[in-house]
Amino acid sequence: MTDVLTVRELRAGYAGTTVLDGVDLTVPANGVVALLGRNGAGKTTLIHTIMGLLRPYSGSVRLGDREIAGAAAHTVARSGVAIVPQGRRVFAPLTVEENLRIAAGRGHQAWTVERIYQLMPHLAERRANRGDQLSGGEQQMLAIGRALLRAPRLLLLDEPSDGLAPAVVDHVADLLEGLRGEGIAALLVEQDLHLAFRLADEVAVMQKGQIVHRSSTSEFRADRARAHALLGVG
């Protein structure tokens, strides 16, 4: 299978510090890779560097055949990468409808605002509400809808379950599971291992700015001792 994302020897950080210390990672087309690791391992930094929100010191990020390392975020986005960021970062002063229309732009036929509303009827009911009037779960739906409107080949999901009630997490998981078959590959950063295992085909574990383990989800789950050693959990 071809890879939609290929990261090689990626080094990046903030203000001279090194957070990513030679990351190698691939995400296969249509595949979902869960990126696990303790706090501070560099997961969000990796997501931001791939998205173009952080300029790497060195290394390569390829989307299909196209080199995107160091490109501006809007260029990366136009190449087919979308992000559901940590903390959701919904535009507070904009209505649900405006949040979606901004992302829709022109010519992304596969996903329309109407299709998002069909997929998430609850958002349709709240279309005139401002971003800061939504519950955490609604904001997460909006952040996912906003990313889908970019018709991405690669979706970067940074802690989609963060701060949500368990029932809402299930709802988000159902929604993301329903996207299988849409031709969207995903790189999923997630602390909730149940959610990560449910959605991901493969698991990559990060430690101190490097990928230290990669296996299929079932293989990873089978070896509890190794999982515990890598993540500090059983």
Binding site: L53, A77, P85, A103, G105, R146
Partner: peptide, 8 residues
Amino acid sequence: AMVSALGI
């Protein structure tokens, strides 16, 4: 930053 991540 989020606006630019939407391709704008």
